[in-house]
């Protein structure tokens, strides 16, 4: 026996009567329509798929599955006013998978990098062995880089000495602000540390521990919008690190030789370029900001290339981060005499 369901809709539609016991699907409207929209339509005016009943002429609405079962009549009255309370579900999350695994791994790698980079930046020694210069210390802008410069045949002369003898701490601090700022404000890393360190949220559909949330709409996180500036500076730095990679072919006995360190510096420069060029800001500047792709065919093509790279931005972010630390470590090991640099030719 089919039930009769009467609804008191709070919307601007007349009350409707439905047959069938399928209280959930048809008795309660799919969505509350707003003016100019129908119950089966989208919020932007596109038509929706329509109610199940109307899509199947001759079939009674709401009898899809249960129609074959003899059931008693069910009446559902929608509350007169809109319901305001959410479902009272206490647990932080009901996820069964290991949602904590990804943030835990991310946090471990990020914290390890920060600890290593801080130690390396403040060490202020073993960052140069001819012809390799650690990417953490390049370009050397302080005059205390002299001991690095002394052994090199060519090292950034226009830059060196920009910060005079009054600069007493490690020269790495001056330049590291650029790559760190670029990575800190990078859209991918933001996701990584907001999830893994700030727990906002730790994983999707897992309740965050913070009482209030303003996101990047207020100080201090509104500063994240300077990402574009760091992108410009980062490109400049990539150019310098590329020159360092070229310099790594310049051994005391002349140009055209290469060791394992050369390979490290070259790969490091390539990874940094791919990471920078796959960045969302780059994608936007190249073509994303255009309204008419059709009027700018070259930029549209370039945008397509950067968009493809952008899909791998996360992987490039991790690989380049780890590799830059490994490159610094290698130069450090060779400079301190722990490792002998193997020469290829």
């Amino acid at each position: 026996m089919a039930g009769v369901v009467t609804l008191a809709r709070t919307c601007r539609l007349a009350p409707i009567t439905l047959t069938g016991l399928n209280v959930g699907s048809d008795a309660l409207p799919r969505q509350r329509p707003h003016p100019g929209n129908t119950a089966a339509g989208r919020s932007d005016g596109r038509p929706g798929p329509g109610p199940a009943g109307s899509a199947r002429p001759g079939r009674r609405r709401g009898t899809s599955h249960a129609g074959s079962h003899a059931m008693t009549a069910v009446t559902a009255e929608r509350p007169a006013g809109p319901a305001k309370a959410r479902a009272a579900i206490a647990p932080r999350t009901l996820r069964l998978d290991k949602w904590w695994k990804e943030p835990a791994i991310t946090a471990t790698i990020l914290i390890s990098f920060v600890v290593y980079a801080t130690w390396a930046a403040f060490k202020n020694a073993d960052y140069f062995v001819r012809p390799y210069l650690s990417p953490f210390y390049s370009p050397c802008l302080a005059s205390i880089c002299g001991h690095a410069r002394a052994g090199a045949t060519t090292v950034h002369p226009p830059m060196v000495g920009l910060f005079g003898p009054w600069w007493a701490i490690s020269p790495a601090i001056i330049v590291l602000i650029i790559p760190l700022g670029f990575r800190f404000t990078c859209y991918y890393y933001r996701k990584a540390y907001y999830r893994s360190i700030w727990q906002s949220p730790s994983a999707c559909a897992v309740r965050e521990p913070h009482k209030g949330y303003k996101g990047e709409s207020k100080f201090p996180l509104i500063i994240q919008n300077v990402h574009r500036w760091f992108f410009y500076l980062g490109l400049l730095l990539n150019g310098i690190l590329t020159w360092d990679a070229v310099e790594a072919f310049h051994f005391p006995r002349g140009w055209g030789h290469a060791g394992f360190g050369t390979l490290m510096l070259v790969v490091n420069a390539i990874l940094l370029w791919t990471y920078s060029l796959s960045c969302h800001s780059c994608r936007h500047i190249i073509g994303g900001r255009l309204k008419h792709f059709s009027r700018h065919p070259l930029r549209f093509k370039l945008w397509g290339v950067v968009s493809k790279m952008n899909t791998k931005h996360m992987q490039l972010a991790w690989v380049s981060l780890i590799f830059v630390a490994l490159t610094d470590l290698y130069v450090r090991l060779v400079a301190s005499g722990w490792v002998t640099d193997p020469r290829f030719f």
């Binding site: 996701k191 949220p201 949330y213 303003k214 996101g215 990047e216 996180l221 509104i222």
Partner: peptide, 8 residues
């Protein structure tokens, strides 16, 4: 500005 791009 409230979105912190966690991609959920």
């Amino acid at each position: 500005g409230y979105c912190n791009i966690t991609k959920c």
